[in-house]
């Protein structure tokens, strides 16, 4: 599990330092380092650091993108509390994340176990990860077509079973589950491969011992695989949950937030506010909130993960 802990707590000093005790290096080495780091530092400063500061500043302003921003203090944040569309966007996003993450994690676990216990074929793994290589937009349109209410193949199939055509993207109650499951289709194989890589690191004699003791595959999954996989699983969950909160592409090309506000997830709402309603300041305030939520989610999950690590190692 060494790799995993490295992800959670990247080692800030490299192993190589043991070679020479002076940690600041020679002048020549310092100059080289400066030259090597300069492009990345420039990119970081201009496209990450500066816009982060600006984003926070804009969240305290009223800004229509054309005229100079006007400082309004906490007005945007106050407005958030009264904004029913924002509340709805949060709800819809949470529903999306819940459906997406639960279905994706359960399925990915199943696939990973199959890959781990049944076959190690690279071919099978390649097939499973294929959807991940295709753009979100492509997957979204493909399913928009397959799930079409009139001549989509899914509804033809449902028709044979005697079920009336379903407007998957056009129904208030179905839009979010549909979009969530479409994204599950794209990401599940990749998630399964991450979990699979975690399973491969479990020493195989543990399973050998389990079999000698007459444990069933079912039992071994619950008693061996899952407990030993917990740190990896937690890490994968942090990444998938944080990613899931930022769903945009699929919504943008299929429902555009509709019907009504039924699929107006938070990221689409921000886009909508900034670029269609030109409320850039308010959009920034909403994205500050999204930022805080994601940081909190990641922090809580990483805490849980560290708790998990201790009882495994």
């Amino acid at each position: 599990m060494a790799t995993t802990s490295r992800v959670a707590r990247p080692r800030l000093s490299s192993t190589g330092d043991a070679l020479r005790p002076d940690s600041n290096g020679s002048t020549r080495e310092r100059l080289t380092a400066l030259a090597f780091i300069a492009p990345a530092l420039l990119g970081f400063a201009v496209f990450y650091f500066w816009p982060t500061l600006r984003g926070v500043y804009f969240s305290f302003t009223e800004y229509d993108v054309f005229n100079a921003p006007v400082f309004v203090g906490l007005d945007n944040y106050r407005a958030l509390f009264a904004d029913a569309t924002f509340g709805n966007a949060m709800l819809v996003t949470v529903e999306y994340v819940a459906i997406n993450i639960i279905s994706q994690t359960v399925l990915a676990l199943l696939i990973a176990v199959l890959l781990h216990r049944v076959t190690r074929s690279v071919f099978v793994r390649s097939i499973v990860v294929m959807p991940y290589l295709v753009a979100n937009v492509v997957v979204a349109l493909l399913f928009y077509w397959m799930l079409d209410a009139q001549i989509g193949i899914t509804n033809q199939f449902l028709g044979w079973l005697g079920i009336e055509p379903v407007a998957f993207f056009g129904d208030q109650n179905l839009a979010i589950p549909t979009i969530a499951l479409v994204n599950t289709w794209r990401h599940v194989g990749y998630t399964a491969l991450l979990l699979f890589a975690g399973m491969v690191m479990i020493p195989h004699d543990v399973y050998e011992a389990g079999r000698v003791d007459g444990a069933s595959e079912w039992k071994m999954f619950w008693r061996i695989t899952l407990p030993l996989l917990r740190p990896v699983l937690a890490l994968v969950l942090v990444i998938t949950v944080v990613g899931s909160f930022q769903a945009f592409d699929t919504v943008a090309v299929t429902t555009a937030g509709g019907p009504g506000d039924a699929s107006r997830v938070i990221q689409y709402y921000i886009f909508d506010l900034a670029f269609q309603r030109l409320q850039f300041g308010y959009a920034s305030a909403v994205s500050v909130v999204l930022f805080v939520i994601l940081a909190a989610v990641a922090l809580v999950q990483l805490k849980l993960m560290r708790a998990g690590e201790s009882d495994v190692a």
Partner: peptide, 8 residues
């Protein structure tokens, strides 16, 4: 989150 930096 990318959207946070992408607006500015």
């Amino acid at each position: 989150p990318p959207i946070f930096t992408q607006l500015p």
